[in-house]
């Protein structure tokens, strides 16, 4: 047991959202899901969910309509690449800025 007079500062962290900062700010492109072709959304069944399974940051929810937590999504594009029905497209984040051209 350490001596109580010693603080023993170390770098130790439990995993959880925000532990490495708001990593969503790293993103250049964000994934957008087309629910009309997404398998669980279209069938109303818990099927596929490959985006949930393969997201390296665990920001995709395992729901009938999968949701992406944009606070932490780094925009890596793995979900878009892996989606078997190409329901996910990567859209430049700049398009979502206030005042961006809506075209």
């Amino acid at each position: 047991m350490p001596d109580p007079r010693f603080k023993v500062l170390t770098s130790a962290s439990t995993s959880g959202p925000g532990d490495a900062g708001r990593t969503g700010s790293w993103r250049v492109e964000r994934p957008v899901i087309d629910m009309s072709s997404c398998i669980p959304a279209k069938t109303g069944k818990h099927a596929c969910h490959l985006c949930w399974l393969l997201c390296p940051d665990n920001v995709v929810s395992k729901e009938i309509e999968p949701a992406i937590d944009l606070e932490y999504c780094k925009g890596c594009g793995i979900c878009a690449q892996e989606c078997p029905v190409q329901a996910i497209s990567m859209v430049p984040d700049a398009d979502f800025l206030e005042g961006a051209d809506s075209e």
């Binding site: 770098s11 962290s13 439990t14 995993s15 925000g18 490495a20």
Partner: peptide, 16 residues
């Protein structure tokens, strides 16, 4: 589970 001595930022931070 804990991550020990991972990349530690120059500044102090709030943990989870």
């Amino acid at each position: 589970p804990e991550s020990l001595n991972t990349v530690t930022l120059p500044d102090a931070r709030l943990d989870v």
